[in-house]
Design a protein around this nucleic acid. Structure first.
Lengths: 328, 328
DNA sequence: GTTGGAAATGTTTGCGTAAACATGTGTGCC
DNA sequence: GGCACACATGTTTACGCAAACATTTCCAAC
């Protein structure tokens, strides 16, 4: 900056004024400064800026993996929204979700140049990590049950699951099987709980639950274990549903002729499955948007109380569900 | 820091030494300082650190979208590798790939606190943006043809495509159709070129090319246009291949009985398609790893020359390809 | 011609950190 | 006992920027 000032024949303060577009600089001076900036390839040092202002204009995102589920779409929405608000996004991936790793991520985040943190992570791991999170850091949690400690933005998992199960019951199926996500996942548990609730409310038998790890392969394995009496399955995400479709195909049971299948997420590919998958649409973009909003609100206005902001879901009916016509 | 120093009854310099784990601090003093740090919830200000050191320990990643193809896996690998090296990742998403937006991203990146930039973006858009990128910023490009200006890390697209097409020819198919990605994509063009080359070398007819936009839906559309004479298709990515499988299913042609299909990417779901997809495996993690390595090398040792670092691919044979048995 | 005041520009200062240098404080050796 | 030397700790300074305050310049009104 000093070099620019010297070349333009002005003080560094004037350079600063020009750089920030402040008023009170005469046009001719401004021109000279801009010319000098160009000549020297000057760009402001954001570290010094941050130091001066006490803010980084950066948000941190702690997450497990981008490959899984809709995480990547949420992150993308967060990044887009943050960019629109003049913030950058810093990613802290936690490879294997051990407690140590999560603690490490929080510690690292504490040392990072961020004004706030969005946590996309299962909360039981968060418990232990809470201690490590500096109290001054603002936090918003996605998809978790931290409602008592932090603001939470979440998809309305329970409602989506209810819609899915009711849809199958309305088609006449005597009951609905369920292939859940990992037991450690709060989202998986809520979907499973809603499934159970609807069945019990309707006075239907509650079949044994299946489990997968969100991957198509695990859905395939779980699908192979479905009994012949099963005519309707609610699968906790689309990728596992893909595996279930494959399993049913190998078992010689047609979808939706013999078995109806509903997924969850409405990923882009779901409409191209064989058959196109009936599934629960999640608005990942909206979740990301609200996260950023809530976090910025918190940063500017101080910590808002905990609480949960639910983003609605809706069922998308495609070709994988059909009326009940008896056990094949 | 000053508060910590006062509480511990030492100078701020000693606090600094403790914080950085430097030698030359007696155990008892160190204990006191650490205690004071804990009590005050002290955490070092990274802006000041960056200002002092002239480095940010942050890498920027410019990209289109995380939802597409293997981008998210590459980004994840980049983030993981960077974290291992003590660097954080800042994401700069470019929503719609217009030239303006790309320029904007580069400008923003120039103002951001990053030591280097990894660009995951088509290079024809990069051309215009090059001007805007400050010369002092280190750059590594992924999956593009910037080989003459920047170091490039890339999957060996051409070799992967060759393996795919040769596999189909070896199965006895008279020729191989191709459904390519968007024409603007360099990766898509290289895969298409390799497909054409292999057919021409083998003296086979080169059918008209199909096109999609990488999405399953576009693959479905392209798949519907395949002529009855087609017995083998090489699809430029797995998601489009999923759409092709659906199209062939609707057309009443069996895979692999009537038509063999090969994809590209080997995404996790591909093994659960109906039938499980034969595809070209890309090592996204390795690409991410090498990117970070190359960039850090550049940062520490000065600009390495341009050039391309190719990550090998290999064919994974599953259930979607079978020997030729005449036109169904 | 002087004076007042607004506008343009310059100077000082501090943000939090760590390198470089300066100052203690003790230990061992002659 | 005195001296040298190693080691622990304190003081000064600069990193790049911008707020706060200080100064200069210029014009208008009398």
């Amino acid at each position: 900056m000093a070099d620019v000032a010297k070349l333009a024949g002005v003080s560094s303060q004037t350079v600063s004024r020009v750089a920030n577009g402040q008023a009170g600089v005469v046009e001719s001076t401004r021109e000279q400064v801009l010319a000098a900036m160009r000549e020297l390839g000057y760009r402001p040092n954001s570290a010094a800026r941050s130091l001066r202002y006490g803010r980084f204009n950066t948000l941190g995102v702690i997450l497990f993996g981008l490959s899984s589920t809709g995480n990547s779409r949420t992150v993308e929405a967060i990044a887009t929204q943050a960019a629109a608000e003049g913030y950058a996004i810093t990613l802290i991936p936690v490879g294997v979700p051990t407690q140590d790793n999560v603690l490490g991520a929080f510690t690292r985040m504490g040392e990072l140049a961020v004004d706030g943190v969005i946590v996309i992570i299962e909360v039981h791991l968060l418990d232990a990590a809470t201690v490590a999170l500096p109290p001054a850091v603002h936090v918003v949690v996605v998809d978790s049950d931290a409602g008592e400690r932090y603001p939470v933005v979440d998809t309305d998992q329970a409602d989506g699951a209810r819609q899915a199960v009711r849809h199958l019951l309305e088609l006449g199926h005597p009951t609905v099987w369920h292939i859940a996500g990992p037991a450690e996942s709060y989202a998986a548990e809520r979907r499973a709980q809603a499934w159970r609730d609807v069945l019990e409310e309707a006075g239907r038998p509650v079949p044994a639950i299946g489990r997968g790890d969100w991957s198509a392969e695990s859905g395939y394995q779980a699908g192979l274990s479905l009994p012949p009496s099963c005519t309707a399955v609610f699968v906790a995400n689309d990728q596992m549903a893909l595996g279930v479709l494959r399993a049913l195909n190998e078992l010689g049971r047609s979808v939706p002729g013999d078995v109806s299948v509903v997924g969850f997420d409405d990923i882009a590919d779901a409409s191209s499955y064989l058959p196109p998958l009936t599934t629960v649409h999640q608005d990942f973009a909206e979740v990301g948007r609200r996260c950023v909003e809530a976090l910025l609100e918190q940063i500017s206005a101080g910590p808002g109380g905990p609480g949960t902001d639910l983003v609605p879901t809706h069922l998308v009916v495609r070709g994988s569900t059909a009326p009940y016509r008896g056990v094949g």
